[in-house]
């Protein structure tokens, strides 16, 4: 988390093989762009929105994993709560979207703090499996409570008028709420970066990540920082939930659906690296949306219909993970000796 953000993409160290891979990917993308420009931009924006949603969940997950060594399986449930709190605030209590955008994440943050205080704080020195299992139990509880309170059927809220229209992007049109989501997510990422890298608070947190015990000896109140970072991680997931809930809707399984892919993102980015999580989130988001399009264009161009494998999008994150981990065992920006 500490040094990685200042690291470059490593273009100066790029090997011939790496250059060939990047060149091939660029060529494939150009083919897809040439064959179906409208669809390409459409899918690109889709991948961006999806990727940013993944980034918002992954940030909290990565912070908690890096700082506390807890594999927080319940983080997807927090994301889901963000969406359902939005429903409660907007659809049931009639509050405007902008209120929900602020209040719902704070409520999710409170749930996160409750989770940390009641359960997870007792597991910091246990093996990672213990935290994973406890968090899994919490995720189940939140999911079932959600079903009990809001029901099984998918719900949605009315998009605010300003964001309901479409934005014209020359070759295609995109709903404004999706672009809004990307902008908000980017601002959140920027905020987290500034907090971690440019403030004394962030400095003490980074010290805690490197050596929790030593940081404690030096007089830093680590337990309080843990709570604060947990709150922050939950709030960020909550923001993701509000945006997703407004743009797409919500269902009790959305937490489950997202948490596994988000783990993939964190692992691909490198455990303990926030910058890695952002890069991997965008990479996987785009890969999920663009791979099917690229394959279809390729099938069109070459005339080999078998290339367009249906439903490949769902498998892409896992293929990316296998490839990345086989080439770089610690993910893209993972640190040595971290969670190994």
């Amino acid at each position: 988390m500490s040094t990685s953000s200042s690291r470059t993409l490593g273009l100066d160290r790029l090997s011939a093989g790496g250059a060939a891979v990047w060149g091939a990917i660029a060529l494939l993308l150009l083919v897809a762009l040439a064959v179906e420009p409208g669809l390409f931009v459409d899918q690109f924006v889709g991948g961006l929105v999806y990727g940013m949603t993944l980034v918002l969940i992954a940030l909290g997950l990565s912070i908690i994993l890096g700082l506390l060594g807890i594999v927080n399986f319940a983080h997807g449930a927090l994301f889901m709560l963000g969406a359902y709190f939005t429903y409660q605030l907007m659809a049931l209590w009639g509050l405007p979207f902008w209120v929900a955008l602020v209040v719902a994440p704070l409520l999710v943050g409170l749930v996160g703090v409750l989770m940390e205080r009641l359960v997870l704080q007792w597991l910091y020195d246990e093996p990672p499996l213990a935290g994973l299992l406890a968090a899994f139990g919490i995720a189940l509880m939140i999911q079932e409570a959600t079903r009990a309170i809001w029901g099984d059927t998918p719900l949605s809220v009315a998009t605010p008028a300003v964001l309901a229209q479409s934005a014209d992007l020359a070759v295609t049109t995109v709903a404004r709420i999706r672009l809004f989501s990307v902008v908000v997510a980017a601002l959140v990422v920027l905020g987290v970066y500034l907090l971690i890298e440019r403030t004394d608070f962030g400095l003490s947190v980074r010290a805690g990540v490197q050596d929790r015990e030593m940081a404690g000896f030096l007089g830093i109140d680590m337990p309080r920082r843990f709570v604060l970072m947990f709150f922050l991680g939950a709030v960020i997931a909550g923001i993701g939930g509000v945006l997703q809930g407004t743009a797409v809707g919500m269902s009790p399984t959305m937490g489950q659906q997202y948490i596994i892919i988000t783990f993939v993102v964190v692992v691909v980015g490198g455990i303990g690296s926030l910058f890695g999580s952002v890069v991997a989130g965008l990479l996987i988001g785009e890969a999920v949306f663009l791979t099917p399009l690229v394959l279809r264009s390729l099938a069109d161009v070459t005339g080999v219909g078998a290339l367009a494998v249906p439903g490949i999008g769902g498998l892409v994150p896992y293929l990316v993970m296998i490839l990345v981990l086989l080439v770089r065992p610690r993910g893209l920006y993972g640190q040595e000796g971290f969670m190994e």
Binding site: V119, L129, G137, E144
Partner: peptide, 20 residues
């Protein structure tokens, strides 16, 4: 009881806290 998994989750949390 439709939501029995809630109690399963609770059982899990308690079990892990006692001894994983």
């Amino acid at each position: 009881l439709v939501y029995w998994q809630f109690f399963l989750g609770l059982l899990f949390v308690v079990a892990v806290l006692v001894s994983p």
